[in-house]
Simulated scan of single mutants.
Amino acid sequence: MTPAKLTTALLLCLLLAQPAWAEQPYQIVTEEWAPYNYLDNHRLTGMTTDIVQAIMALTGDHFETMVLPSMRSSQVLRNRPRVILYSMFRTPEREPLYKWVGPIVEEAIYPYQLASAAPPLNSLEQLLQAPRVTTRQAGLIPDVLQAKGFTNLDKSAAENQQLYLMLVAGRTGVIVGDTAAGVAYYTRQLHIAPGTLRQVPVELYRSSLYIAFSRDSDDATVTAWANALQHLRDTGELARIQQRYQQPASP
């Protein structure tokens, strides 16, 4: 083979070659965040879990799902190829980092205090001056609160359940961490009587939840998932899944 032909052959091989990971299946990661994605008797369930499974039933995908701590799942999405993460708030800062499928559901975050607390808090100014506002150690919500000027944050809760236990035990006066659906779920799980908690009428954050794909993800796969989600929306199946997890706590 002449040098010219050898060079042409090498260039052709380089053009046709794909990265080693290109043939690997996608890895789905999620975290414990009820009622969207959580373990129930060691079985992964939740609103978004059901939606992701319904999407894969339509696309024919069978990707493995791992449940990881919040910070770890975000690191995997940022640093590993061919990763899908759910559920994630889509923010301006995150927008260019990932490819997005959604929205799945729009949610808001409010603070909560005991209904018996006196005086009741009703404004952002009162929240900023409260002795302590407890939230989780890491994640989007602590960052949002700090950006709003909260200097009274207690970020000692490693898990969502701790927020409610601390509030009921009198170890904090205000908690911030879950949507209304999440609060309903945890109060049921912890057998906190209806009416024990009061939602402070200050919306601290509102956004929509999405499925995030790592930037290297194939556009055809992302589009297939987006089309499948739209099919679930058009047929009413998306609303039916959402309603299963948005039922209020029984009195």
Rank of each mutant, 00 (worst) to 15 (best):
Q113H: 12
L114Q: 06
A115V: 03
S116C: 09
S116F: 06
A117H: 12
P119F: 02
P119C: 06
P120H: 07
P120L: 14
N122P: 05
L124T: 03
L124E: 03
L124Q: 04
L124P: 00
E125Y: 06
E125H: 07
E125D: 10
E125V: 06
Q126C: 03
L127H: 00
L127M: 07
L128R: 07
Q129R: 15
Q129V: 10
A130K: 03
A130D: 05
P131V: 11
P131D: 09
R132P: 01
R132C: 10
V133E: 03
T134K: 12
R136G: 05
R136M: 14
Q137R: 15
Q137F: 13
A138E: 10
A138S: 14
G139W: 12
L140C: 08
I141C: 05
I141L: 13
I141T: 07
I141F: 09
P142R: 14
P142A: 12
D143A: 15
V144K: 10
V144W: 09
L145H: 04
A147D: 09
A147I: 03
K148V: 02
G149C: 09
T151I: 03
T151Y: 09
N152G: 07
L153M: 07
L153R: 08
S156F: 12
S156W: 11
A157D: 02
A157W: 05
E159W: 12
N160P: 05
N160M: 15
N160C: 11
Q161F: 13
Q161K: 14
Q161R: 15
L163R: 04
L163Q: 04
Y164D: 00
Y164C: 00
L165P: 00
L165H: 08
M166L: 13
M166C: 03
M166P: 00
L167S: 01
V168M: 13
A169K: 11
A169R: 14
A169H: 11
G170T: 08
R171Q: 13
R171F: 08
R171V: 09
T172I: 08
T172F: 04
G173M: 06
G173V: 07
V174A: 06
V174H: 02
V174M: 02
V176A: 00
V176H: 02
G177P: 01
D178Y: 06
D178G: 03
D178V: 04
D178P: 00
D178F: 06
T179G: 05
A181C: 10
A181W: 14
G182A: 11
G182T: 09
V183K: 04
V183F: 07
